[in-house]
Design a protein around this nucleic acid. Structure first.
Lengths: 277, 277
DNA sequence: GTCAGCGATACCGCCCGGGTATCGATCCTG
DNA sequence: CAGGATCGATACCCGGGCGGTATCGCTGAC
């Protein structure tokens, strides 16, 4: 299945084999065997190109979930074994640089509980929390709706907030009481920034490249771009930045999420602390 | 992992090996290798008994989920491949003999949609729907809260109903307008029936054994037992049965549930039809 | 004290997964 | 239009790992 996912993602047997650290012929054979075992054509191959069939697309999605589940099983077991010798910590995945106030309150509330487990923080890039939770690198995560997918997790809502446009101080729009999304995204002098995708490359476009919030805020202060963010980011605004409410941007809901069959006392304690905030 | 689950369930290497269709020594070795790979003691073995360690319990839970995910991947891929040649059907898992009225309305509403996929019904025993959905034998299911677990599924609420006590016609309690759970379960002349567990054996107790709703209703009509069920079962009441509202029984909510990452058009259509009822 | 039950170990043989060499088809290029 | 480049498929070989049999060591029961 790992083989198939590699081929399906690369759509190229040679590159997939290289990524898997093996030669191309055995990979070809393995995929053929998988197709025979499933009785289904997974890939449409011509001698020049490889494409997914419908069944292949289904398997790609399901196989990713299955591989994540296997990885999670290994990781969680290892952690459970370590926990018995050391302290039973719990890994909390959260977006780096966001909602630091809420996070602080959560950790305080949890630490105040008797017998609270130690909490290890796992700071993730944009949208990485979901995968961390799925493959067992994290036990619990703070997610932000509607950006992150909570499908398949148990969740508890923590807080909801409006969004604001972060602009360079002194920009004409900062005199306004409120804005609309269309006004902010269509500014010809402040094109929206470009974020790296999962593969580390940036999409094409006019905006400047930003890798994290520090860079982003610096770029805004320099008058090169603007951004729409939850209003809790106001606490982090540095000199030279201004925030204006954006009325029609989706409200952001922060939720705490955990795998549905989690039976860990430590996770339950953290969730309980979270609901008490 | 299959090996470990077998051993963890049997707590006996010999029987587990037999169940897996292999000899005991290679099974022992495989578990040892797994323990070395994970760096964790999974089983506490004496020469007379085998017990799970804490890490072993974690792995058992996680491995079951992972194996289900793998099985689901295979099954769904096979079905996707068949669907391309035949008709793209969707498998709906539902409790045998329950909510037939709701089910009929759902199927009608779905059939009325243009381009509706064919729906294959999978009638399950008590609580089996969850597993069917998890391991890919079903694409969508009707579950009944609070009895079935919806953890890890996306759900849409369909209807909520009170519960009634099903009693033999002419029983003294049938003259009452309503009852309490304690009154129904504590009847010395009508002990609650016993249902077979997942392994097919019946728990000990005074009540008669029932395998399905037909047997149950017959036993009630014969004055041997009674039962508490959602009030929609009134439509199925045969001669000799009476139903009385039970005020403090939990209300039953029927939901339609599907795997969270399901992208199938057929499932989406069925859910859409369900929400329109 | 002896025996039965059960998991661990030792050793063996075979199959499967991975490697190299090569083919066949298709598209690009001069 | 021909030749080369690219890429997946095929043929063949090899070694490690998995499963099988035989046996040991421990422990609880009669």
């Amino acid at each position: 299945m790992r083989y198939f996912v590699a081929v399906a993602e690369e759509l190229h047997f040679g590159r997939a084999a290289q990524r898997l650290g093996m030669a191309q012929p055995p990979l070809s054979r393995a995929i053929h065997q998988l197709e025979r075992r499933l009785g289904a054509a997974l890939l449409e191959r011509t001698s020049r190109a490889v494409a997914l069939t419908e069944a292949g697309a289904v398997l790609l999605r399901e196989a990713r979930a299955a591989l994540d589940a296997v990885e999670a099983a290994e990781r969680r077991t290892r952690r459970a074994a370590l926990a018995r010798t050391g302290q039973p910590g719990v890994v909390l995945a959260t977006k780096a640089g966001a909602s630091s106030e809420l996070l602080a309150k959560l950790l305080d509330a949890h630490a105040a509980e008797p017998g609270a487990a130690t909490v290890d923080l796992l700071l993730c890039g944009i949208g990485e929390q979901e995968r961390m939770l799925r493959d067992g690198r994290a036990d619990v995560a703070l997610l932000h709706l509607p950006f992150d997918a909570t499908a398949g997790f148990d969740t508890e809502e923590l807080c909801t907030e409006e969004q604001v446009a972060v602009l360079p101080a002194g920009h004409p729009l900062t005199t306004r009481d409120h804005l609309r999304v269309a006004e902010v995204t269509a500014l010809p002098d402040l094109p929206m920034p470009r974020w790296p995708g999962r593969d580390g490359t940036y999409p094409d476009g006019p905006g400047p490249q930003a890798r994290d919030h520090t860079q982003l805020f610096q770029l805004i202060a320099l008058g090169r771009t603007c951004w729409i963010a939850p209003e809790s980011c106001r606490a982090q605004l540095r000199e030279g930045l201004a925030a204006v409410r954006v009325l029609d941007a989706p409200t952001v809901t922060t939720v705490i999420a955990w795998p549905p069959h989690s039976r860990s006392r430590a996770v339950a304690g953290l969730v309980r602390a979270a609901t008490r905030i």
